[in-house]
Design a protein around this nucleic acid. Sequence first.
RNA 1: GGUCCUGUAGUUAAAUGGAUAUAACGGGUCCCUCCUAAGGAUCAGAUGCAGGUUCGAUUCCUGCCGGGAUCACCA
Length: 576
Amino acid sequence: MNIFSIYFEKIKKFLIDLEKDKQIKLSDNLNKLTIELPPKDLQGDISCNAALVLSKINNKKPKDIAILLKTNLIKKFPEFKNIFIAEPGFLNIEFNEDFWQKFLTNLLNLKEEYGSNSSIKNRYNVEFVSANPTGPLHVGHCRGAILGDVITNLLTFNGNEVSKEYYVNDHGNQVKIFTLSVYYRIIEILQNKEFPKNQEDLYRGEYVVDIAKKIIDKKLINQFNNYENIYEQLKDISIKESLELIKINLNSLGIQHDHFVFESQLFKNNEIKNTVEKLKKKDLVYQGKIEAPKSKKEKNYKERKQLLFKSTLYGDDKDRPLQKDDLSWTYFAGDLAYHNNKINRNFDILINVLGADHAGYIKRINAGVEALSNKKTKLSCKVSQLVKLLKDGKLFKMSKRKGDYITVEDLINEVGRDPVRFIMLSRSNDVELDFDFKKVTEKTKDNPVYYVQYCYARICSVFRNLNLDLNEEINFDEKKFHINSNERQIIKKLSEWPKCISISTQRMEPHRIPVYLYELATLFHSYWNLGKDNISFRFISDNKPTSLTKLIILKCISYVVKSGMNLIGVNTPNKM
RNA sequence: GGUCCUGUAGUUAAAUGGAUAUAACGGGUCCCUCCUAAGGAUCAGAUGCAGGUUCGAUUCCUGCCGGGAUCACCA
């Protein structure tokens, strides 16, 4: 029930009819036609730019066309109470009260389903987090994790089928180093040999000690003398334990993946080899050299011949290596195999949610998917920019080497899930986010999380005071449906909800939802405060509702707030 | 140097190519102490620079200036 898209279609058809009637000329396409909310202080419920779009081809002033359209529109649509022509030629259409009464009735029936736009249904695969299984998640992973989760919520809400996936890189060099780190910790405990200090790349977080202890205590392995012999077993256990930590972290953020795909499995099933073969058959693989990196840090580069994928044919900057120096597969080769695996599972659209540090990877993986699927499978990569942690206004830097970074666990313990999710989502994922511990935990109106939650709690409180159940059906047969300007503004805002959902989903920009909810909450709070000056604006007098219309508006707000908060995975307490 | 992201009031942000650029905090002035403590009214204040496309540009394109990320092997 998106009135903007409904009237887009209706007015489009109206214009086509008008052309058949030879009253106007139409341009080739009407794509530039828009229906949107007029600016706040202007009259009208929806605004249409038809006159502006048609001005040139008709060789007339926008205003003259607007006058022509106005008279015809009023004749054609009985629900249009009035049309105001605003400079330079916008048609601001006001609906009659019957229309809004029907609108609210529909919303009451749809409840929390209101806002779902399910015209096109697809099968999606959303890959997100995919952090190395070498330790718990830290704050840096958080934003992408929540972004991925909410993108899947949006897609599901709109009737799509979505698989949430985590790609586990349990095969590369980092895994070797991690396993070795666990081993050193075991030896440290059992044989009192100090954990090596000079090897900088070892994992030295406290959790490595915990994993070591667990392996010893539970006697998961008994002999530790020969590292080579126990390596495979030790690796499997270490990764399993580490993945458990990650799953606990994800759970505390309210995130659960449907599928974990292991790189090692792709390797065992020969999928990497087969994928490279597939590319070879397409003549997209060759032995060649790539130039030295321009990065100033890199001094160890040695030029050599290696197996390369011709990603430049698909818009990448250079061809990408598939094999390392020792002829083992690169991470990229494994990821190509993983994407080939996804392609074989016949998803319509693949989505990868990446951190800013992996943005440079997008072109090559896009190239890979295009090549492997013959351009049939769509891949869309969303990047979430960095989170800057602030404590008392000061930048807080994390160092992985020292092991002193803030984990998701720390974050949730200190701040709580709701504020973390809300704040992480409140900015466009294309911009850096300041995350200030102090501000985020403040329970004041300046904190948008509580401001929105408080709106829901206040509505609950009204129904509680009336001994009514918020979820009970109300029949909307009020004869005198009158609304004041605040109520009208709220209803207009409610009418915008499906549009907000549809844009958020199409563009995969969930930050629009917290922004919308905050705006709706603002309107609600000022509506509530009307009752301060004037008792007749209160919802309750003498323990009875002052009007059914008011209750219904409150109910409709509650549905939208609840549904929006569900989508972003934030709670709506009944009391605060 | 290449690539990607980014530049909006004093600050933090918003704006599927729309109208007088929207809010919050902070600042000025005035009111209020209540169905929930977290209130209301009002004033001042901004699109980095230069072009282009468009009826219309914060938004799209080009160049410049600034901030961030990234650029063999790692993941």
